[in-house]
Amino acid sequence: MDYIIILIAAVFVNNIVLSQFLGICPFLGVSSKVSTSVGMSGAVMFVMTIATITTYLLHQYILVPAGLDYLRTITFILVIAALVQMVEIILKKVSPPLYQALGVFLPLITTNCAVLGVAILALGLEGGSLMKAVFFAVSNSIGFGLALIVFASIRESLELADIPEGMKGVPINLLVAGLLSLAFLGFTGLV
């Protein structure tokens, strides 16, 4: 039951993008096409899960016992950064098309607050365990992917719309995100 609640909360009620405001950069940046947004979601899910596992273990077995809780931020980000750069180098070799598609945004996963945010939030889960933390990361990346893909499909269809000059670009994207977030308020109270 806990797991279902985590999932519903992460995907709908407290959607990481639409209500927690984490990962807004890639949300606005890599959402011009559905296909790339799918790739990005996958990349984020991958990185987020691995990062959460690593940081959880790091926190649980090194930081806390050593009383170094205050180094949480710096160690986490270091681990994530190294991880992302590793993924980037590997991807460039293994799958050039995906590398091309995600372009400059792969390094930006490093600065994707969603990844660090989830890693930190995962520590504060009630009755936390590694399993829960991982599940939390996966759920959140699903929430991220859902928001990103829906948003990308809307943006794709807006490409064909005659958006007023002043609203073009960033404002309309923010507005769509706002209305999406407004609609998601309907899920309030589900958990």
Binding site: L18, S19, F21, G166, M167, V170, P171, I172, N173, L174, L175, A177, G178, L179, S181, L182, L185
Partner: peptide, 21 residues
């Protein structure tokens, strides 16, 4: 609404328009 999440997006959207103008 404006202190809720959607309000952040919406307010920023229109502030950006205004700022650009």
């Amino acid at each position: 609404l404006f202190i809720l999440p959607p309000g952040a997006f919406i307010a920023l959207a229109y502030l950006t328009v205004l700022f650009n103008k």
